[in-house]
Amino acid sequence: MADSPIFLVGCQRSGTTMLRLVLDSHSRISCGPETRFLPDLRRIVDEKRDWPRLARFGFPREDWLRRIAGFFGGVHADYAAGRGKARWADKTPLYALSIDFVTEVFPDAQIVHVIRDARDVVVSHRKRFGYWSAVKCVVKWPRYIRTARAFGAQLPPEQYHELRYEEAVAQPDKTLRELFEFLGEEWEESVLEYADRSHDVADKYTVEADKRRAAAGTDAAIYASRVGTYRRELDPFLRLLVFLFSGPMLKELGYR
């Protein structure tokens, strides 16, 4: 499946941006900015939305799916070709809720689902988006995990791969080698130093990344100091909410 589209998904603030840059550093893979709009195109073929009206054009549903794939995939393919890359990937966390549609449009797509400890995800939401976002995250996180895993369970093993953020930063060489093996790509050591490569990211990301590395006292692109931040940064109220709403999924995933 070495030429299949790659979709990188997971609850926001789970490390998907880091993995996006890792993929984008590979000589064959291009992973550009988030698209976010693919689920909006679903309404075209949705029986409860636009399909009853659009079906009157006389084109079968499969034809509309082909046109959606041509448009969406064409944008990525042209972007990849312009950067000298042979294969494209899309990093959009939101697509964790739409893997069924993603694989309907792209039947050969490979899904990489990034999972991170809900407690650290909640902390990251509070820092990045504010307290109310952290409160909502305790419900959002298990919904993303549950939905993506349910869709993933219906796919063959060569199409769905789970990657734990904690393992990726603690053992990047091992974890990322396994990722590229799943993708059918040759291993390249340079992906571990993705920060040395040029990527199409907002300036604020580079500034934030530099600040985080400085705070961690490292100049490495991948580091583990953000694992377990909840132990010192999660207040009692958010801890209670996480226990009530995210606790069962944390237990199911083996987090202690």
Rank of each mutant, 00 (worst) to 15 (best):
K85F: 10
A202V: 04
V45G: 02
E162D: 15
L176H: 06
E158F: 06
S27R: 13
A86Y: 07
E188R: 12
K136R: 08
R231W: 00
R119N: 12
P236K: 15
V22I: 15
A153F: 02
L240Q: 10
D203M: 11
R146G: 03
R213V: 00
F180E: 06
A80L: 13
D40V: 03
S25Q: 09
S124Y: 13
A118K: 10
W141D: 04
E185C: 08
A89C: 12
P156V: 10
E166C: 13
K174A: 15
V138C: 12
A118Q: 11
V227C: 14
V75H: 13
V139G: 04
D40Y: 05
V135D: 03
V9G: 08
D173C: 05
S190Y: 02
Q12V: 06
L23R: 10
F71N: 06
I222G: 06
V201Y: 08
D90T: 06
A170C: 06
P248D: 03
Y144E: 01
G58T: 07
R28Y: 07
D108S: 12
E158T: 01
L241K: 04
A150F: 01
M249Q: 07
I99Y: 08
F151W: 12
D3H: 11
A109Q: 10
L8D: 03
F57I: 06
K174T: 15
A2Q: 14
S124P: 11
R43L: 06
A55W: 00
D63V: 09
A148H: 01
P107H: 05
R231Y: 03
Y165I: 07
L65S: 04
I68T: 07
F71A: 14
R256H: 01
R61F: 02
V45F: 05
D50S: 14
A202H: 07
E167Y: 01
L54Q: 03
